[in-house]
Design a protein around this nucleic acid. Structure first.
Length: 290
DNA sequence: TTCCAGGGGTAGA
DNA sequence: TCTACCCATGGA
């Protein structure tokens, strides 16, 4: 089945996909030549299906093998591409802010997300205290070992559900995932969700105050200030900068010396509620993959 | 061998 | 609130 979804003003499909490294994490695959984003997804008990996304003019084109519930397909794409998050106010702010005028001109601001907050949490944990190459390897092992295969191409799999991860013992999980000390946080999060103690998806509720949401995210195992701030961005809250080693490097260069996390926060404080987006789309970039 | 990478958790001050 | 230390993994 094919869907054509009208794109909001100020949205650019490629800018969204390339805004950070998520396109390189399984089960996403990004064809940079054809500009097609794909992943295997399971809809309501059906066999896994390949979902392909691209853009044409002012519409997003979604192609899915076979037939799936249209409402579910639209909801899936909306979350992944942050179509439910308005960017107008941020773009207006950038138009008036030195060094940020390229943001609205390029339709930047949205970042590719996973279909669930659960998947984003596991992936953010996989980025902490490691290299990007290892992050990609850890996430691929989650998918390859615990996801469901696409029948027409078993090399492609779904991202494992909480139930699928919880169904294996911790020792078995840790041995296959090889995520180091992160394995405990990942397996516990999945198990808590599967056993009904944690409802992460309800945290996408925009009525939750941003500070409360930050505290909730910090309560998750393996999620500290950096990871919680990353997740806030995906949830459309930009008041906290995700201070990582790169932020310290960049601000350190600006100030001509080594800086603390506190000083990095102070550096971005003038940008108010847009701080995290300003850091991300500031005209300084780390590399072309992340 | 040793260090450390898009940090987190904890103890002790 | 701040600092020091350890944490599994795998590449350099």
């Amino acid at each position: 089945m094919n869907l054509q979804i009208p794109l909001p003003t100020g949205f650019d499909f490629q800018e969204c996909v390339n805004a950070h490294g998520w396109k390189s994490l399984a089960p996403f695959t990004w064809d940079a030549d054809l500009k097609i984003l794909s992943r295997v997804e399971q809809f309501a008990g059906q066999a896994p299906k390949l979902v392909r996304m691209s853009s044409s003019g002012s519409a997003l084109i979604v192609e899915i093998d076979g037939t799936v519930p249209e409402v579910a397909a639209r909801r899936l794409v909306e979350r992944m591409l942050q179509l439910d998050i308005a960017m107008g106010d941020f773009h207006d702010y950038c138009k008036e802010t030195d060094k940020l005028k390229h943001v609205p001109n390029s339709c930047q601001g949205r970042m590719l997300r996973s279909p669930t907050l659960y998947e984003d949490v596991l992936k953010v944990i996989s980025t902490t205290n490691t290299t990007w190459a290892q992050t990609k390897a850890m996430v691929s092992r989650l998918v390859d070992n615990f996801g469901l295969p696409l029948l027409s191409d078993p090399s492609l799999r779904t991202f494992p559900t909480p139930e699928q991860l919880a169904s294996v013992s911790f020792d078995d999980f840790a041995a296959k995932a090889r995520m180091g000390y992160r394995s405990a946080s990942v397996h516990k999060t999945a198990t808590d969700i599967a056993e009904g103690r944690l409802d992460l998806e309800s945290w996408s509720d925009p009525s939750i105050p941003s500070d409360d949401l930050y505290k909730r995210l910090l309560s998750l195992p393996g999620i500290g200030p950096y990871a919680a701030s990353c997740l806030l961005i995906y949830l459309g809250r930009y008041h906290r900068v995700n201070v990582d080693s790169w932020a310290r490097t960049l601000v350190g260069k600006e100030m001509g010396r080594k800086v603390t996390d506190k000083e990095v926060h102070e550096f971005f404080e003038p940008y108010g509620k847009w701080r995290a987006l300003v850091y991300h789309f500031y005209p300084w970039r780390k590399d072309d993959d992340a």
